[in-house]
């Protein structure tokens, strides 16, 4: 007999997942082109005269990068959960409403206009991508609202069309500029995790953690919304408020992730699905577990990306698709006898 989720069970699961995340982060921080030994990392932090290279690599290169992967993975997986339930569409991912093309357009505009300043350590590409992402999703939401409050199809169509339109504008800008700088944009758009400033990391982490906690707070209402807005409303849920809050948080965390690391595909699609297949659709459980699993997944993927063809590096987006795709299909086939969400 399937038991209802209890506080104790949930706490235990979250603690376990968190422990796994810590172990994975630790293990991955020891992998890399340069072999480092833990002993010497903890031996000394070095003196101004003689720096300890192992400590330098561990603290200033490996750790920030792993923390970044962790933040971005968590953000994308959490946002994926939210978009899937709000759009009641299993194919939804954080980019479905045009964030990707909005971010792309923003970054191309930054390149074309040739800005060279930085904002909190972020390049103009990242800043413009953030503005593009958040602006696009607002535009899509606004258009979707015009088609009707509860009209999910209208929202999806608006997303698809805005996506196509912005993609065309991107192509246009690329054709007319023919700048060699365009290459850097394309590489950036493929999804790339690199070493980051500590201030940027903590700001990003702060937003993502706050967002996840807020989403957890409304997860029982998200369960009700899985049954459709009408049903949720007649069960006493203030659907427009919950929808707006969930949407805003997911859009913001996705935009932050895009700003930090470009477009990393697949995490926001397969992690929520994978977790749902194993643990069920209850958002009180799905949301925290997906967030942590997303972090684990991206830390591992990024470690592969920087070690597989070392000393060169692959864009992590390639790894997430190559590793995640087949893994997800296996999980899907294995569990399809007990779950069925798209043949009904």
């Amino acid at each position: 007999m399937k038991q209802l989720l209890t506080k104790r069970k949930l706490f235990f699961q979250i603690a376990l997942a968190f422990a796994v995340l810590m172990i994975v982060m630790f293990a991955c921080s020891l992998q890399g082109t340069q072999h480092i030994s833990l002993k010497s990392v903890f031996a000394s932090s070095g003196t101004p005269n003689s720096i300890n290279p192992d400590y330098e690599i561990f603290v200033h290169v490996r750790l920030p990068r792993i923390i970044l992967a962790c933040i971005v993975g968590a953000a994308l997986a959490g946002a994926g959960v939210v978009f899937q339930v709000l759009l009641r569409n299993p194919l939804a991912d954080p980019y479905i409403l045009g964030i990707s093309s909005g971010a792309g357009l923003g970054s191309i505009i930054a390149v074309v206009s040739g800005f060279s300043w930085t904002l909190w350590g972020r390049s103009p590409i990242a800043v413009f991508a953030f503005i593009g992402a958040i602006g696009t999703i607002w535009l899509v939401w606004f258009i979707g609202r015009l088609t009707g409050k509860a009209n999910v199809t209208g929202l999806l169509l608006a997303g698809v069309v805005v996506n196509a339109f912005f993609s065309a504008v991107i192509m246009f800008l690329i054709s007319v500029t023919q700048s060699s700088k365009v290459y850097s944009t394309i590489f950036w758009l493929m999804g790339n995790i690199s070493e980051e400033d500590i201030f940027v990391l903590w700001t990003g982490a702060g937003f993502i953690i706050a967002g996840t906690v807020a989403l957890f707070y409304i997860s029982p209402q998200l369960n009700a919304i899985s049954f459709g807005l009408d049903d949720a409303r007649s069960m006493g849920i203030n659907t427009s408020r919950i929808q707006l809050a969930a949407f805003a948080i997911a859009a913001l965390t996705t935009s932050i992730a895009v700003c930090l690391s470009g477009l990393i595909g697949f995490v926001g699609l397969i992690v929520p699905h994978g977790v749902r297949l194993v643990f069920g659709p209850d958002h009180r459980q799905l949301l925290p577990l997906s967030t942590i699993t997303g972090a684990i997944f991206l830390v591992v993927a990024d470690t592969l990306a920087r070690t597989i063809i070392a000393p060169a590096q692959l864009p992590v987006g390639i790894i997430t698709a190559i590793v995640g795709g087949p893994f997800f299909l296996l999980l899907l086939i294995k569990s399809s006898h007990k779950t069925s969400w798209f043949n009904k």
Partner: peptide, 28 residues
């Protein structure tokens, strides 16, 4: 919602909740 409960026409949610979870959701 404390006055009126509604049973709408045949509808299956996209995510597979169990029977008891479904009924419990009315207590949200």
């Amino acid at each position: 919602a404390g006055k009126i409960a509604v049973v709408r026409q045949e509808f299956i949610p996209i995510f597979s909740f169990s029977v008891i979870e479904t009924v419990m959701i009315s207590r949200t």
